[in-house]
């Protein structure tokens, strides 16, 4: 199946923005759980599970055969009254962390999860150093060019100008 899809993709991929999986995604309503709360829970779990044979799509978004089967499995487990964690665990035992669209925080994914804070921190640090450096250099003796610029700066102080 995977390989078959790959062959199918071969023709499609040559578009740069080849879409995740060209799906004819009309689902079978009989898949859905009778209780809307259960169905909502199943959808929330499904949105966290990757359709294994597609690109970065969740099983809720894909009409690939395997995604449909996995949707059924999720709904069976929900109907049995299992918790979200239990269902997630059931899936991870079988398919590994690959099936989780948001990877668990481990030592190996620390960089990934830390990236937003890290990038922001590095950026702000660079900006801070730049500002501090500039304020340190300001009192140093200026060459004529810089003196001129400083004059302009003091003249332009406090004005709003595009």
């Amino acid at each position: 199946m995977t390989r078959f899809l790959r062959h199918l993709f071969l023709s499609l991929s040559l578009f740069l923005i080849a879409t995740p999986y060209i799906a004819l995604a009309v689902d079978d309503p009989s898949e859905m759980l009778p209780d809307p709360r259960d169905e909502a829970r199943a959808e929330a779990i499904g949105a966290q599970l990757r359709c294994l044979v597609c690109q970065n799509e969740s099983i809720e978004d894909s009409s690939a055969g395997l995604a449909r089967d996995l949707r059924k499995v999720v709904r069976e487990h929900v109907a049995k009254g299992e918790t979200n964690d239990q269902i997630m665990h059931w899936m991870v035992v079988r398919y590994g962390n690959f099936i989780r669209l948001s990877p668990p925080l481990t030592l190996a994914t620390a960089l990934l999860w830390g990236m937003p804070a890290l990038a922001l921190l590095i950026g702000l640090l660079c900006a801070f150093i730049m500002f501090r450096r500039r304020s340190v250099t300001a009192p140093l003796p200026l060459d004529p060019d810089e003196q001129k610029r400083l004059d302009e700066l003091s003249r332009g102080k406090g004005q709003t100008d595009a």
Partner: peptide, 29 residues
């Protein structure tokens, strides 16, 4: 920072695979 996050998220799976031989998915959530 957003650019770095998107870049990291996109490149993490193949690098994990290359360095640790483990696969993960990084998706919408």
């Amino acid at each position: 920072s957003i650019c770095a996050v998107v870049l990291t998220g996109t490149m993490y799976p193949p690098f994990m695979s290359l360095l640790f031989g483990r696969t993960i998915s990084v998706g919408k959530p």
